[in-house]
Structures are given as C-alpha cells and as structure tokens.
Design a protein around this nucleic acid. Structure first.
Lengths: 275, 275
DNA sequence: TTTTCAATACGTCAATATGACACAATGAAA
DNA sequence: TTTCATTGTGTCATATTGACGTATTGAAAA
C-alpha cells in the first residue's frame, strides 16, 4: 500500500455518495433531540490562497467576539470524512473538497469553555440541546484546501458571519481553535512534499511566481526565484502553457498547470528532499 | 511553534501524571455499567525491533483464531494519549512509552463485526456490556515504539495471549486491524526523518549495522553500508562509544548511542532529504 | 511616443552531496 | 594457523545545490 493511499482520501476524490440530508439548523437548535453521535466532533481549518497570502475561513460566533473554525458532528451512518465534507459543503458551497484529517484534540480541559447558557438561551436553543453542547468533546482536526475564488461562505446556526481572514490579522479564536489552526499549519508544512497542496490551493492556471509565493508562505521563508523554478521544473509535474498572464504590470509571466499524472506519481515518492 | 511540538508528545515525555486506576477486567466484564466514553476507542500498533526484524505486539482473542491490536477506551477525565498510555502500560509493563496518534478510523462498516454474542456469553460478559461492545466505534490509531527486550506482554480480558509477531508471519487480524497496521507502517516510513524512531526502538547502545537494518526494514529497501554510515554520521546525532560489540562472529562493530540533544534538533529540521 | 523600471526568463559556476565501488582490518569459527 | 564473512575507511565521477549575473518584457510614467 502506498503511503498516500494509506493515509486518506486522494485528490478531490469522493469516498462514497454523500447523503443529501439538509438540516434546518435554526429548527434543529430549538428541538430537544438530535441524530448526531455524542462526544465526537470535527473542526476544519479551511485554507485558501489569495493575493499572495494564505487565508483561513472563520465563523464569527453569535453574541461573542471570538472566531471559530467551521465544525460539525457525525451522523449515525457517516464516516468522519463524510461528515467533514457535508459540513464544508454547507459552509462553502463547494463540492469535492480536498481534506485531510491531521490530529485528534482530546484534552479534557478543551471543552471547559466559558458558560454560554445565556447566549444559547437568547438563540432560542432547547435546554436539552444546551446540555448536549456542554458535554465533553473529542474533536478531529481536518485541514481543507479550496480554490479561494470558488467559495461562497455561509455562516452556520451558531454564527453571524463566515468569511476569510488573513493568518496574521485573524482575531482570537474560541476554545483550543488557535492550537488546532497552528497544528494544521505545521501539518501543511510537513506534508508539502506529500500532498497535492499546490494543486488544490491554486486555480487551474497559475504562474511560477504565484506557485513560489505559495511555497514561501507555507514554509515561512524566502526562496530563490531561479533555483525554485529550476527545481520545480525538474520534477516534471508542471505543464508549461503557451499563454502568459496579461493585464499585469511588468513582464508578463508564463502560465502553467499541473500535470496531474506526474504530480501524483511524484508525491507518492515524496518530491524528494526539502527546500 | 515547531512541527514536532505541534504534532504531539515528545520523546518519552509524560503529559501529565496518569491516574493509577487499575481495573479488574474480568470483574468489569461481568458488571453492567462502565466509566468509559461511548463511541470512541483506540488501537495501538506496538512496534519492537528484534533480530533485525520489526515485530508487532498482538493479542490472540478468546474463542477466536483472529489476532488483534491492543486497544482500549477512554475514561471520563483522560486525554486520548493518557488512555493509550494506560492501555499500553497494562499490556507491556512499560512506563513512559513513546506513542503517536496517526489516523482515525471511522468507516461505519468497520464496527459491523461478526456477531460474537455466543463468545461473549461464554466469557461471562454482562448483557448490557455486550450491547455496549456492539455499538459503533470510531477508533483512533496510535503507533508505539518500545524497546523489545524490556516488554512483559500481558493479555487483556478479551484475549488469551499477548505476544510478538514478525510482520510477515502474523496471521489475519480482526475487523479493520490489518488496515490500521498497514497505515501505521506507512506512517512510520513517512515520519522516519521527523520522529525519534531509532531512539525508541533500539537499546541504548547499538551498532551501525543494527541501525541500518532498522532503516532498511522500515523503508523496505537495501541501503549501501558505507553511504549509510557517512550520512548518518554527518548528522552529528550519534555518539561513538569506545566499546565494541563482543561475542559476535566476524569483525566486532563499534557501539554508538544517540546524542539526544542533537538528535531532537536535527529531527526538528527533518533530517533533510530522503534515503 | 519614448523612457523607465520592476519583474520575469534564462544561464553560469563553485561548493557540496550522492551513488557506486575498492581495499584493508578484524576476530570468531573452521 | 587459516578462513572468511563482516566491519572500518577511503576514492572518484556525477548530480544537486546555493548564490548570483544578465538579458528580456511590457505596463506605467514621462
């Protein structure tokens, strides 16, 4: 078994048809019961790349100043991945989202949030649901990579807004979500040579400087322009197009797209060495 | 935050004092209630290295031909890591076990085992406990690295024996444990340059050929003896001892030990490049 | 229109790392 | 005492890396 296939879903590949169950969340909040598994939740760090920056999709919680990663729960017949995809389809409007689980956060102290009973009451939450939210949660962290321009963010029942934040300017997150996000970023760095990260974050056509900026952002360091191009081309995973990017100041850069077949093959080897 | 610190516990480092709760498992089986969280379990791939081979610690299930990874459940106030450590201390007699979570297995079909009601009844299991075992389980996979010679394997309440198997000669495992084990191995390969795998699998003093054999086993390919030594020494993570291994046929090889400080520093960089 | 200039494309070269071997030394077993 | 599989050390051609130089482009400024 290859490393990649052992560790999870492939490039934008659907595991199994998702049940198209749509839940009216406001109504769900006001009812006593629910169909979700107890104790287990998931939180997603959704990354996009825009204007040379990594962006993260965050929810602004109702009656609170804090931001939160989009999260969700598992239904009785779902896998974690299916639950995460369902959650993110609701939040982004996208289908076929690339995601990877990366860590389970299970510190008993992580669920001991401030008492939000008052807020929940204002939101019209049923008492039994408040109890349910107050239980201990073990959360599986996912990171998701999406094409920034394709996303239509939608808040969930507990949040006012859902929008993009730059990593530097993001505010304080709820609970241990800062830690989850930091761990997601560290994982991204670690998996840069093993996962189709460029492919899923960039639009189909992109320039070499754009690809380089993405690598620099994830790795957190400057790379030499000329050496980057040499190495990247040597992998044979890029398809040089005849087009150039127009309407941009200075010399027009060439456009590239990924040679998906070679890319996946190269990732399986691990794009040997580091940067 | 460094990649390592973001991704979990460090080299044989205790997170927090473990509650020294010892459970009489036979009695626990015969009682109705239990203090464990529902739905969430953990399974551990415990690796040792002996006679130039990777070994895996497996349980032979009572009334069954199948083998199983040591597993366990979470108590109300434990983190996953603490639960895994508690489980493995019971199974191996070791303290300060190095372990890493690597994947969550959540396919709804994974819990749909053959009906074992008859077996469970023979074992004196309480009916409510049988129901509890029959629920859907989402299992967090851990791999653990132990020093083979230090382990005192002990079976649990559901198993007859607990002992080492070579990876090739192991029999068929229950449920999806084969997949969990394969994924653990793939993770080990992937993390060889980022985790203190040699340090935790080998005894304190070891020879260069032993270290090489370990790398070859995990990577699944032969390495050149001389190039391996050159590269390994260039990292500066080894401490050359004055002793040689005696009592062995042919030329006596030198002994080495890890220079822990340099080793950890090097791992944080990722022991650049691959083999 | 012409000029400017920041950004891009393409190339060079020394230093380093890698892969593939050769050869001498050792020490238990024959 | 000899044998010989195994270990310690070294060499060399080749590939890769890091650092930097120069020519080209095309929108924006003059």
């Amino acid at each position: 078994m290859s490393v990649l296939s052992a560790l999870g879903p492939q490039v934008r590949m659907r595991l199994r048809p998702i049940m198209a169950i749509k839940i009216d969340l406001q109504q769900w909040l006001s009812e006593p019961g629910n169909d979700f598994l107890s104790h287990i939740s998931l939180d997603c760090a959704v990354f996009g790349f825009h204007a040379g920056e990594l962006r993260i999709l965050l929810l602004k919680m109702k009656n609170q100043d804090r931001l939160a990663l989009p999260g969700g729960f598992m239904m009785a017949q779902e896998s974690l991945e299916e639950a995460a995809i369902r959650t993110l389809e609701e939040r982004t409007g996208l289908e076929n989202i690339f995601l990877q689980q990366f860590h389970v956060f299970s510190d008993p102290a992580r669920s001991e949030s401030a008492d939000r009973a008052e807020d929940f009451k204002k939101m019209g939450m049923h008492p039994s649901k408040m109890e349910w939210f107050a239980q201990r949660w073990i959360s599986v962290g996912f990171y998701a990579l999406v094409e920034f321009s394709q996303v239509n963010p939608k808040p969930d029942a507990l949040s006012e807004t859902c929008c993009w934040y730059s990593l530097e300017e993001r505010g304080k997150l709820i609970l241990d979500h800062d830690q989850i996000l930091e761990t997601a970023l560290a994982t991204l760095r670690l998996q840069l040579n093993y996962q189709p990260i460029g492919y899923n974050l960039l639009p189909r056509k992109f320039t070499m400087p754009e690809l380089q900026k993405l690598y620099e952002t994830i790795l957190g360091k400057k790379l030499d322009r000329r050496n980057f191009q040499r190495k990247m081309l040597s992998y044979g995973i890029l398809h040089a197009l005849d087009e150039k990017r127009t309407g941009v100041a200075h010399k027009a850069p060439y456009l590239y797209s990924f040679h998906l077949r070679n890319y996946q093959k190269a990732l399986r080897q691990g794009l040997e060495a580091g940067w």
